[in-house]
């Protein structure tokens, strides 16, 4: 299937048997929400009555904790329904264009990206939504990752900060090479100097000023790095990096493959929070999948003219 055929197949996605399933899930979501409202109202009324009529003022202390507990149960219930919607929708969408979907990828999928240092260091990670297969005969494997750093303040309180959220994707590359070339975000002169010691290989200075401003290239083979990063390919990387769906791109070439860590805004491939049968939700997931086509097309990964 060509990219255009895949795009057409994706957009002609007929909900078919999926429509009633999503409708049923939406009914369950509404029911769960109504139960939540009912419980909140009933409990609120009882607490209010007991405080005003019976004078049990100490109940005020527990009402906050009670509200949290009810909200927690409701949240858990909603998460299960959302996950079910996603489990139904994503495999069907991927199947439509001949791709494979796996909700729970192996944690080892992150190892090459960590070894190539194209993702930041992290304390906790979540991997989900693995999509793999071929786009125009190019093998690829994509997982969605969320990496979190955990730090403690002087009082020992934990705080979490997300250091990476986006796609980790690898493609077969059309050139033969043996070395390792890593392209990371440019951290300006001082930042590059401070982080330079941890980088593998020598710094590669390329001719394109815009590329040099945005990225830092390190490689263990100066000639091979330039063989991979031709002026035309550099232009393609810059163009891809400008896409609104891409927040920051870091990439590496190793063992005949190109590895990309694409930082994005928010969570992708989701079942939605409200209106689980909303067509916009399917459209949003289609757009997320279409980024795979953009990668192949913008970076021209299928071409064989070696430029």
């Amino acid at each position: 299937m060509t990219i255009e055929e895949m795009r057409a197949a994706l957009h002609s996605f007929d909900e078919g048997g999926l429509g009633p399933v999503l409708d049923q899930l939406e009914e369950r979501r509404k029911k769960a929400f109504n139960i939540f409202l009912g419980v909140v109202f009933l409990l609120g009324f009882c607490v209010f009555f007991l405080i005003l009529e019976q004078g049990l003022t100490e109940l005020v202390k527990f009402s906050g904790a009670g509200a949290l507990l009810v909200s927690f149960f409701f949240y858990r219930r909603m998460s299960v329904i959302r996950r079910e919607a996603k489990e139904k929708l994503m495999p069907a969408l991927c199947d439509q264009i001949g791709l494979n979907y796996n909700l729970h990828p192996l944690s080892s999928e992150i190892i090459p990206y960590r070894n190539l240092s194209i993702i930041p260091s992290y304390d906790e990670m979540t991997l989900e939504d693995q999509i793999s297969g071929k786009v125009e005969e190019i093998d690829f494997n994509l997982v969605e990752a969320k990496l979190v750093n955990v730090s403690r303040d002087s009082k020992g309180r934990k705080s979490r900060s997300t250091v990476f959220q986006g796609f980790l994707v690898e493609f077969d590359f059309h050139k033969n090479f043996n070395g390792e070339t890593i392209i990371t975000k440019d951290h300006t002169a001082i930042g590059n100097f401070l982080t330079g010691w941890a980088k593998k290989g020598e710094k590669v200075k390329l001719e394109d000023p815009e590329f040099e401003r945005k990225f830092e290239v390190h490689s263990n083979d100066q000639v091979e790095a330039r063989y991979l990063l031709t002026p035309l390919f550099i232009e393609r990387v810059l163009k891809f990096n400008r896409l609104s769906s891409v927040k920051q791109l870091q990439m590496a070439f190793k063992n005949g493959r190109i590895y990309m860590a694409i930082k994005r805004k928010g969570n992708s491939f989701e079942g939605g929070s409200f209106n689980l049968n909303d067509p916009k939700l399917i459209e949003k997931n289609m757009q997320d999948i279409a980024l795979i086509f953009d990668m192949v097309k913008e970076l021209n990964l299928t071409q064989e003219t070696k430029v």
Partner: peptide, 17 residues
């Protein structure tokens, strides 16, 4: 030949730099 030319071009850019 095209592959070799690609490598020559890359080596030329390294040399010129």
């Amino acid at each position: 030949y095209e592959e070799v030319e690609g490598h020559i071009s890359a080596a030329r850019r390294f040399y010129n730099s």
